[in-house]
Nucleic acid binder design. Structure first.
Lengths: 222, 222
DNA sequence: CCCCAATCGCAACTCGTGTTGCTTTTTCAG
DNA sequence: CTGAAAAAGCAACACGAGTTGCGATTGGGG
């Protein structure tokens, strides 16, 4: 990774050493990741790290941008449900693997470190943008109305992963991913993200489109 | 707040002073919240704070438990959609107000501080548990099947708020809250959280309950 | 009313992060 | 091959968080 950044190979060696060292410490589950430890592991003086990256978060940001440059194969199977499901499984792999700790560390630093906040924000702005294609394709296919807010739908699909990663710590397994995808699909199909609705009745009234109320009572099983 | 904790009023005064000082610094938007600063604002020596709370996060945890003890009026209007919407608006108020910064600070500390992680986890375990009542009531009313996973539904309802609070920083406004509630409602109605489905057809097949596919295409407006 | 125990204040200290000034190495141009 | 600029190493330092030991205060039980 990190195809030599300048042909000179000058201090690019230092850069590579630091990044691989940081990466190594991360995957080893080092919760106490620190600049000094990274420098030591890289066989480099800490001042070099500080001068080049200014921050621990700077190093982590460079690591993250490495992942960002990997092309993600946005699913396009021709079926919205399948696309969403595969997308969710993709997100799951991104969250549970190595980048998970990276994201956690950066998100944790974000409130106090504007640079970290910007890195996280930018990373997911791009990722979410790519994911919107799944919804856009469904719109193009006529499965969804043109007014569909793809961004909002992707947000609903992705959010539960962050909840489990950053707040609650429950397993992010495949069933969870599938269920999350199904929830997003259902909301999309129900027109939740298609703001072509009437003037919006105030809070007390029924929010349901009055016509489509089939009194759904799926077989009182058991 | 904090109705005198022991009648003796002994060093409970210190406790109260520290908590109100911390609260004050928080609402003033002090991003660099520190034990020493709190102690100084409370007119108390920092050792007292460290001895009693051990951590900055300990203080924040006590502050949070103050909010936790406030009773939240879980909506119960008789209609699932309305209940979910009001619930979402309730969550919004909790996120955007003072507790928002508190939650952010604790969530940020969580990856490095097990105590903080436990505080956040416990707080939301309780809150989510309360919110499940909304779903349970709908089940009791017969609006939803008995096998409905209330917890999963609440997770989908709440998650987007955390995404915006902790990762992306986009406004958490009322429209967002309403849309999020509608998404959860749609997923619930579609049976996403009612695991009474057939053996689960592998990935390619349709994930929809085949019967309830009205080909909904909400009036191709515009 | 008084004394004991709990707890607070104070000051000094440790320790780790990040900074700074200077020297040494490295590389690229000429 | 050589010299100058850029970047790395090194060591000392500044700074703030958290700790510790001890003396002073305080409040409740006897």
């Amino acid at each position: 990774m990190s195809a030599g950044q300048r042909p000179g190979g000058r201090s690019a060696r230092v850069r590579a050493a630091v990044l691989t060292a940081a990466h190594g410490l991360l995957v080893d589950g080092y919760s106490e990741l620190t600049v000094e430890r990274i420098a030591q592991a890289a066989g480099v003086n800490k001042t070099s790290v500080y001068r080049r990256w200014t921050d621990l978060e700077g190093v982590l940001g460079d690591l993250l941008s490495e992942y960002a440059s990997e092309v993600v194969p946005i699913p396009d199977t021709g079926d919205l449900d399948t696309d969403l499901e595969e997308l969710a499984l993709l997100v799951r792999r991104g969250m549970t693997g190595e980048p998970g700790d990276l994201i956690t560390a950066l998100a944790a630093a974000a409130p106090r470190n504007p640079r970290a906040a910007e890195i996280v924000r930018g990373f997911f702005a791009e990722r979410f943008g790519l994911a919107e294609a799944v919804v856009d394709h469904a719109v193009a296919r006529g499965e969804l109305p043109q007014s569909t807010d793809a961004r909002a739908a992707i947000e609903v699909l992705g959010a539960p992963f962050f909840l489990r990663l950053l707040v609650v710590d429950e397993p992010i397994d495949e069933e969870f991913a599938r269920r999350t995808a199904a929830a997003a699909a259902a909301a999309l199909r129900a027109g939740v993200f298609s703001p072509a609705r009437e003037p919006r009745p105030a809070i007390g009234a029924s929010t349901l489109p009055p016509a489509s109320r089939p009194g759904r009572q799926p077989s009182p099983s058991r």
